[in-house]
Nucleic acid binder design. Structure first.
Length: 462
RNA sequence: GACCCUAUCGUCCAGUGGUUAGGACACCGCCCUUUCACGGCAGUAACCCGGGUUCGAAUCCCGGUAGGGUCGCCA
């Protein structure tokens, strides 16, 4: 290999404000790796007071649709990653904000043609077989990467044979590498923060920028997110799609927190933080070099931590939504009852998708409690039913029907009868909820109230 | 096949020449307890291998190996 003349990059003057972009192609879903790329771009923009641009790379007409763009926009919005420039809707001709549009590549044909002509005029491109080819550099190109340092990329053996690449296909449609560079150039992008899968290709991009006679932006190639077993994360893999977090009822702030720590960390940073809180501490140089593996268990841990800290009002709101999705209507119940009922499960920190199995019993008729067969076999037995009967009588005689008095009454009865507390608790729980597991018994009884508890026990005794 | 990136507990991160290699998740045990959890206490578990450099390497260099990526008229 010949000596490598590195490309000399001149650092952008401090006075030039940072402009970063997230440029997804509408494939029908927002990949978790893409979400993290967007997050890192967002963090860097906020940290530097720069601009976060959203650009839609929809040059591939075949799989391009407004719905597919909407998936990306709604995913980013759900995560709270607001962009300063870009489309407001999935409509390529719809409203935008920002002065560097259009932000859909499908609408930028004129710009690409002009830039293609420029390269032709400068002798960097030529036509062949009806397509426009770029006269690629034959010597190794040095990529300056803020995370990895200098990366020297020589030609591969196949590229040695013919390093020139197509810029515009014979059907007139420009290819990704060309439009990507043109857009970054035209949109004044100063830092390209993207997945490591683009690192090798960056040599092409650098050569293109040089052909245009400008310095390339600074690059930061972030490591990829792999499955737990180290394989590539594809669409169907668990956790690959941001929409799956929405569907399963994760808290977006938990997802953000988890993703932030996947490949990045800073000194003396607490475990839990909002993106606004760590943005000031975000440095590209602190990003890891190695790929990370996606661990759903850890994400669940973050969800748990955030859920139990959640403001009750929001927890109830999200809970009602989750129940509705499961076909459980709470509208017919007093709001205070609904709130109290759901709140008995907040400390569980479960995914909202799982909330129905913890709270559905609150919203069924008292004579329609469904008994889980296993639970019934265990707790509603010939020996336990008489105990349950006695407990019911004791509850009925209580002047105050609240968690404290219920607990005292139950424990007193257990002592009188000479049985373990559990011998009363289990039958009562199954009678009132249908299951052996659930929220704190005394609290759920209080929420149900004297009348419903009496009816449910009677139903179970029948 | 060529080229590029990477390599600390099972996983995510600390650790940038001298540490009993630290934390978190997960896992295991005990305590608490009305269930499931939470919480408290304790525990198992890692520097990929081989050469160098050095008084001394997880840390620096080289080579292997392994994993990932790229080499499209896909993005």
């Amino acid at each position: 290999m010949d000596a490598v003349p590195p490309v000399s990059y001149f650092p952008h003057p401090m006075s030039v404000p940072v402009r970063v972009r997230f440029a997804p192609s509408p494939t029908g879903y927002l990949h978790v790796g893409g979400a993290r790329t967007a997050l890192f771009n967002w963090l860097y923009a906020r940290r530097t007071g720069g601009t976060f641009v959203l650009r839609i790379e929809d040059t591939d007409n075949a799989r391009n649709s407004q719905e597919a763009v909407d998936v990306i926009l709604s995913g980013l919005r759900w995560l709270g990653l607001d962009w300063d420039e870009g489309p407001l809707t999935g409509d390529a001709n719809g409203p935008v904000k920002g002065e560097f549009g259009p932000y859909f590549q499908s609408q930028r044909g004129e710009i690409y043609r002009r830039r293609a002509d420029e390269l032709k005029a400068k002798g960097h491109a030529y036509e062949k077989d009806g397509a426009l080819f770029f006269r690629m550099s034959r010597t190794p190109i040095t990529i300056l990467d803020l995370i990895r340092g200098d990366v020297v990329r020589p030609l591969t053996d196949r590229e040695e044979i013919d390093p020139d690449r197509v810029l515009i296909r014979s059907d007139g449609v420009p290819v990704f590498h060309f439009v990507n560079v043109v857009d970054d150039l035209e949109m004044g992008i100063t830092h390209v923060i993207r997945g490591e899968d683009h690192l090798s290709n960056t040599a092409k991009h650098v050569a293109l920028f040089r052909a245009f006679g400008v310095e390339p932006p600074k690059y930061a190639h972030i490591p990829l997110i792999l499955n737990l077993d180290g394989s590539k994360m594809s669409k169907r893999d668990q956790g690959a799609s941001v929409q799956s977090y929405v569907d399963d009822g994760y808290l977006p702030e938990a997802v953000i927190n988890y993703l932030s720590l996947l490949g990045w960390s800073a000194k003396d940073t607490p475990e839990l933080f909002t993106k606004e809180e760590i943005a000031p501490r975000f440095e590209l140089a602190d990003i890891n070099h190695a790929n990370a593996r996606f661990d759903l268990k850890k994400l669940e841990h973050f969800h748990f931590e955030y859920t139990r800290r959640l403001e009750p009002k929001r927890f109830v709101h999200l809970g009602v939504e989750a129940l509705l999705k499961a076909g459980i209507h709470t509208a017919g119940f007093p709001p205070s009852y609904v709130a109290a009922a759901l709140l008995t499960s907040q400390e569980k920190g479960k995914l909202f998708k799982e909330l129905p199995i913890w709270t559905d019993f609150y919203f069924v008729d008292d004579d329609a409690v469904v008994f889980d067969p296993e639970s019934k076999a265990k707790a509603l037995t010939p020996t336990s039913l008489p105990l349950l009967q006695k407990l019911s009588e004791r509850f009925a005689a209580l002047p105050e029907f609240n968690a404290a008095s219920l607990e005292a009454a139950l424990k007193a009865l257990a002592t009188e009868l000479g049985v373990k507390v559990g011998a009363l608790v289990q039958p009562c729980r199954v009678a009132c909820t249908g299951r052996l597991v659930g929220p704190s018994l005394y609290h759920l009884l209080e929420v149900l109230g004297r009348e419903k508890v009496a009816k449910r026990i009677a139903h179970a005794l029948r």
